[in-house]
Amino acid sequence: MDTDGSERGSRILRGILDACLLSLVAERDRYGYELAAELRRAGLGIVRDGSIYPLVARLERRNLIEGYVVRTDRGQRRRYYRITAAGRTELDEARALWDQVAGGVHAVLHPPPAGGAPHGDA
């Protein structure tokens, strides 16, 4: 993707990325690298790994998710995130809003083929 395309993609994603993170955490508890890897796998590789942390922090501050630490076999301390009840409600609302916006944008960007003259022309 060229620079302009990448910037446009980043701008579009900025408003919905928190909902994407909520959705990933709603599937199962996940840690930071996992979240970033899932976004890349979904084709959202324009998102830099680290940019998820401020978003996750905001979600945690709003009590939509909560973090806890698990020690792995290799001695690593992984911080996992799990969704809260308020997070699930927020996710439902975000999904409904996205469906509405995405449907509207698609209808505008892909209009049916025009058949006649513009309105008002004789």
């Binding site: 840690y31 930071g32 690298y33 970033a36 830099r48 790994d49 680290g50 940019s51 942390y53 630490v69 690593q76 301390r77 992984r78 911080r79």
Partner: peptide, 23 residues
């Protein structure tokens, strides 16, 4: 720092650089 460190370790294991994580 622990959280960032594990993320950087995972990134290093995947052959990625620190800029891919923190910009």
């Amino acid at each position: 720092i622990h959280e960032l460190r594990t993320h950087l370790e995972d990134a290093a294991a995947q052959g990625r650089g620190p800029e891919d994580v923190v910009g």
